[in-house]
Design a binder for these strands. Sequence first.
RNA 1: GGCGCGGUAGCUCAGUUGGUUAGAGCGAACGACUCAUAAUCGUUAGGUCGGGAGUUCAAAUCUCCCCCACGCCA
Length: 570
Amino acid sequence: MARHLITSAIPYINGIKHLGNLIGSQLPADLYARYLRQRGHEVLFLCATDEHGTPAELAAAKAGQPVAEYCAEMHAVQSRIADGFRLSFDHFGRSSSPQNHALTQAFAGRLDEIGLIREVTEEQVYSKADGRFLPDRYIEGTCPNCGFESARGDQCDNCTKQLDPTDLINPYSTISGSTELEVRETKHLYLRQSQMRAQLAAWIDSKKDWPILTTSIAKKWLNDGDGLQDRGITRDLDWGIPVKKGDADWPGMEGKVFYVWFDAPIEYIACAQEWEDAGKGTDWARWWRTDKGADDVTYTQFMGKDNVPFHTLSFPATILGSQEPWKLVDYIKSFNYLNYDGGQFSTSRGRGVFMDQALELLPPDYWRWWLLSHAPESSDAEFTWENFQTDVNKDLADVLGNFVSRITKFCRSKFGEAVPEGGAYGPAEEKLIADLTTRLQAYEGHMDAMEVRKSAAELRAIWVLGNEYLQANAPWTTFKTDPDTAAMQVRLALNLIRIYAVLSAAFIPDASKVMIDAMQTEDDAWPSDVAAAVMALRAGHAFTVPDNLFRKVTDEERDAWADRFAGTRE
RNA sequence: GGCGCGGUAGCUCAGUUGGUUAGAGCGAACGACUCAUAAUCGUUAGGUCGGGAGUUCAAAUCUCCCCCACGCCA
């Protein structure tokens, strides 16, 4: 029994995420959280929406809503979709929460006390029509180098020359199209990450068991060029957390907010406070403060590879810089990208399947199983409809679903809807128990190590054992000459259904529940002792024959979906 | 242009610190079975491990060069 804090990278608020985002953090985090809970560990699994910044403001404006209202609505949408995929967050918070406001301001004040914050006066482009400072990428104009007319403020996409917004000829705001731009001086706070380089490097180096993908990205940022750079942590925006030192005003920073990258990871902590304040638990500090009981917590973060720098450097810089006893991450599990049929998922082109659409097509288990069994762990992975169809049909419908179907229906027709008696288990059953024990240990090892694909492969192999057993021992043949032995064989197979339900729950929770319900049992104990587990359902125990666990994806559906999600244009 | 991760059977992928005939699942062929969602189980075929050079008694596994794909950065 151990205590595990698990967080998934928090998705940005503007819009619905695609399947690549799902398998990049939330889904594997959920798998791990569910597994650890099943093994009897105490788990706090947190996720939230990342709500601040210019994109949220623009999305709200486009929707014709106040940004706070827009975010509240989108949070509800994302929350509902997360439920749809059975993501078992203990709390799904919001980075715009009052808790995060207070905590972010407290961190900033603390970092300032320690001397890790400096003020910088810089020039930025201000748009009168928009009434706001414009981030570089929201300014376009003609490239002074090649004459390209839609060069962005930070770089010309045509000649790739790096630009400053003030270099552009005839610059305009991409938000309003206005050309009434002017350069204004503005003051911002910078976090002196450069001063923490050695400390962060030592911390990273101490993490010998982290995946290469994680440490290599971190070290690149730490060591490339002039090394880790100081970063601005404030912005001239309306929507965000007001810049304050704790609850005191910050002279000269009136009307400014913290930059999202600073406040978003702090939400991991604030989310635990939200969890407590929502009445879902008590003593949040026990999970986050090593001086208040969190020293025995194992903290694991899940994220896509694009998020690694923030979790290995930026957020730890905040934590370590505060010199307060906050819990630091113990293990970072990062993922590569899932590609869609030879290219990238693309929101703007409508290319690929998004989370809400996926749930319209098929129940969550189908997606969970395919995505997890193809998780992009060692390199980018590939989604194709053909692959999805054959894998889901074979693994879920044919191997697992059909196993449940064939044995429950056989039993019903020969012995009725109750576990039959028969004699004691013999050599064939002992061998199955031994094989199952071996595979179960391998499965546990992979799950403990967060080896997602390998876990899925092992689980599938466990399902196959049931079919092998039935095929080799053929109770339908045995029944003709030796009904008693056939009864024993069926009794074993029915017990396998319960075991499969338990072992599969983290991957396919809905189907798992159907199996448990069909077996009419409350016993969902982990089958550590397989020999005992195959006797959990005793002779005479009533069960029901469930509907088919999984239907098959047809060729027509596959083709129609491939066509529908191909995107509007290349 | 620099850097990073990859390039292993038709497809999706495993391959520990270099060591006997390079593995799995799917797909294919053949066979068995008929309880079941035309499901299941078994057998077989299939790869000069991107190309070249080198180190070594021994390399998919180390070194160098090149090619290809993807990503990041400038």
